[in-house]
Simulated scan of single mutants.
Amino acid sequence: MTTSSTDSASTSVPAASSTTPGPASLPDFDDHRTASPRIRIQQLLHANPTLGPLAVLVLAIVAFTFSNPRFFSAPNLSLVLAQVTVIAVLALGQTLIILTAGIDLSVGAIAVFSSILMASLAVKAGLPGPAALATGLILGTAMGALNGFLVTRIKLPPFIVTLGTLTIFFSLNSVVSNSETIRGADMPALLTWTGTAIPIGTFRLTYGSIIMLLLFALVLFALRNTAWGRHVYATGDDAEAARLAGIRTGRVLLSVYTAAGALYAIGAWILIGRLASASPNVGTDYNLDSITAVVLGGASLFGGRGGVLGTLIGALIVGVFRNGLQLAGVEVVWQGFAIGLLVLVAVSLDQWIRKVRT
């Protein structure tokens, strides 16, 4: 009798599990949803954030080439790359901060102030070119570190911190420069070297653009192949979970803002070469342009998702659209309208992608 009841009990479990709906039925539902084209596209874009921006860039290049054959000429493409270089470097620093779910509104202020400091130290203080450049880079890095200190130690929101330092740095910029532009001809050759172009046929590649590409390669390697890069993503994805996992999120955030400041300072050096001068009156659009490039590149403003390749593509999209619309005879105000519309579409797409079923 005991054996019979045991056998009966043992055979009843599979029978119940085979007739009772439970978790085993869920994969069929997920597979059905995954089979739909909309879900497949959503999952593809979630897994490869750069695909969407890359498609937009290619379509924009094709469209503007058809509208005006001059667009795809080597001299014009050289101009687009030169115009994008400064914004791309600033957007690279902005990317690091946005990956941690922060925002930096002081991008343009740090870059312009650093350029003024480099030029003033060389021209007014009489420092040699290397010393003026090194000091400017250090001070620019310190400005980024100040933002990081206020965010991590004083616990102020990144938006408020960088809004405040935006005003402070632009004010100091006016004081140091006396609102006067310093000509490149008066500076040591090292400060304007980044604007020197290397002719490749009819295409002209500046040293500033080469530096920009090297910086992207360096940051890409750091984010993909180092513990620091993994900690940056983890902090942006869920800071509390990262802290509980043993990651020192405060140190990560401080290092990110400091690295961003260093990138902004290098962008300032490239800016001097680009303009062949140091002007306190430039950079008013750099903050929005850098954020635009990051958003168009597929990075999430909520942190934890995105990459530097997308940011480079996003910066190119901004440059291509502005140049292409200008060649098409579109007024500046409508160029801004088009860029703003792209940003809204990109943010809406990001919200949709974040709802993907995994």
Rank of each mutant, 00 (worst) to 15 (best):
L254A: 08
L254T: 01
H231Y: 14
V232N: 13
L218F: 15
A259K: 01
T226N: 13
W228T: 07
L254H: 05
E240A: 12
R230G: 01
V256D: 02
N225P: 00
L254W: 03
L218T: 15
E240M: 07
F221A: 07
I247C: 04
T249K: 12
S255W: 05
T235A: 06
L218P: 08
V252D: 01
Y233R: 14
T258W: 03
E240C: 00
V252R: 06
R243S: 13
A259P: 03
L223Y: 12
G229H: 05
D237F: 11
G229T: 02
T249A: 04
R243M: 08
A241F: 08
V256I: 02
L244T: 01
V256L: 07
Y257Q: 02
I247D: 06
L253T: 01
F216Q: 02
L254I: 01
L253A: 01
L223I: 09
A245G: 14
W228C: 09
W228D: 00
R251A: 05
A234L: 10
A241I: 03
L220C: 00
A259I: 00
G246N: 06
S255A: 12
Y233K: 11
L220Y: 14
E240S: 13
A242G: 10
T249Y: 09
E240P: 00
A222N: 05
T258D: 01
V252S: 04
V219D: 12
E240K: 13
A239H: 00
A259H: 01
A245N: 14
D237Q: 11
Y257G: 04
G250T: 02
R243L: 03
D237P: 00
L244N: 09
A241E: 09
F221R: 00
L223C: 09
G246R: 11
Y233V: 11
Y257D: 00
F216A: 14
N225D: 06
R230S: 11
R248S: 10
T249L: 06
F216L: 13
A234K: 10
V256C: 03
A217Q: 10
D237M: 11
A241V: 10
I247T: 14
H231I: 08
F216P: 06
N225L: 10
L220Q: 15
V232D: 07
Y233D: 08
A227I: 15
L218Y: 05
G246C: 11
A259F: 00
N225Q: 11
H231T: 11
H231A: 15
T249P: 03
A245V: 05
L253S: 06
H231N: 15
S255I: 04
L223P: 06
R224N: 09
A241Q: 13
T235Q: 10
L218C: 10
T226W: 05
D238H: 15
R251M: 02
V256H: 02
Y257P: 04
A241H: 11
V232T: 14
V232C: 10
R251W: 01
L220N: 14
S255C: 05
V219T: 11
F221T: 03
N225R: 15
L244K: 11
